[in-house]
């Protein structure tokens, strides 16, 4: 298991390296000037040049690139061009909020999505199936910000169940923190339910059509045993893979959700940094996103081994 994990870790290094280079180029291709964005539009050219010098963007590109790569290798993501704080500090301040939002909505997605998908596969073409498919289609087709605003209007403003804005609450007050997490997590969770249910249904359908299920049935095994032991365990593998992949999608959608609920998190940070063309911060943020997506893939890979011993043995 350890060797397997190490191998996967090593394989992700070139990926991260390529991502870093792409990020560096990407943030600089976007037209705009961090100095202008920070100083406002009545700043004179002289002052703007002075500021450019102070944040190091007056240097040639290759030099900036070397400095950036050198720093990243030492775990240093630099200073935010707009606020002057370290990027690591700014990111780690809000990272827990994005992580808990993502985890919470995955939990919602899995807890509701998998049963929904499994049962709609078992009761294929029955009323329940149609209903479940409709629910998941709704989840899939609503944009994140739209669901968020709908929930905000009804669950928060009209019925007054949740706060409009999701704020900074320390973990010393876990209930309030969860209370603030609920609505954003639900908005994202609904989308996750859609994806997970769909994947579960098709995966389960495929497995139920396999020969070994027929064999199990003909052996006279109880129906529940066939469905859950022979069927569900095998159906779980693609569900896990895709849920891992959805993490990327979820992080993208979390940006929108966080902004609508004005929730602390990477989303707000990324929009603010784009607005102020804060190159270092953008780099740091995308590195963080890339890191978590690589990590999610890694965890998915490892969890295969746990669910399905065949994967580990083949490797």
């Amino acid at each position: 298991m350890l060797v397997f994990t190490l191998k996967r870790l090593l394989a992700s290094i070139p990926t991260l390296f390529a991502v870093l280079t792409v990020i560096f180029v990407l943030v600089r291709i976007v037209p705009g000037d961090p100095a202008l964005a920070v100083l406002g539009d009545s700043a004179s050219e002289e002052v703007i040049q002075e500021f450019r010098k102070s944040i190091g963007i007056d240097k040639p590109l290759w030099e900036q690139y070397l400095v950036f790569m050198g720093d990243v290798l030492q775990g240093n993501l630099g200073l935010s061009m707009a606020t002057g704080k370290t990027v690591v500090e700014e990111v780690s301040n809000v990272l827990p909020y994005t992580l808990e939002l993502t985890v919470a909505s995955i939990i919602i997605g899995v807890v509701f999505g998998i049963p929904l998908g499994i049962f709609s596969a078992i009761y294929r073409n029955h009323f329940f199936d149609y209903l479940a498919r409709m629910v998941s289609l709704l989840g899939l087709s609503f944009p994140a910000f739209y669901i968020s605003i709908l929930f905000m209007i009804y669950l928060s403003v009209e019925w007054d169940w949740f706060p409009v804005f999701s704020e900074y609450i320390p973990w010393s007050d876990p209930l309030t923190r969860l209370y603030h997490l609920a609505l954003p997590a639900l908005s994202l969770g609904v989308i996750m339910i859609g994806y997970v249910a769909r994947t579960s249904r098709s995966s389960m359908l495929e497995v139920l059509g396999e020969d070994y299920i027929r064999t199990a049935k003909s052996k006279g095994l109880p129906r529940n045993m066939v469905v859950f032991k022979h069927g569900f365990r095998n159906a779980l593998i693609p569900i896990l893979t895709l849920t891992g992949l959805y993490l990327g999608l979820l992080m993208g959608n979390s940006v929108l959700t966080e902004i609508v609920f004005n929730r602390p998190g990477l989303g707000g940070l990324i929009v603010g940094s784009l607005e102020s063309r804060d190159y270092t911060m953008l780099q740091g943020l995308i590195v963080t996103y890339a890191f978590f997506i690589v990590l999610a893939n890694l965890i998915t890979d490892i969890s295969y081994g746990l669910v399905d011993p065949r994967v580990k043995n083949n490797d």
Partner: peptide, 14 residues
């Protein structure tokens, strides 16, 4: 700092 117009309006309404 609330960049989304709708969010500001709803928050005021509440």
């Amino acid at each position: 700092y609330v960049p989304v117009n709708t969010s500001r309006e709803l928050a005021f309404k509440k």
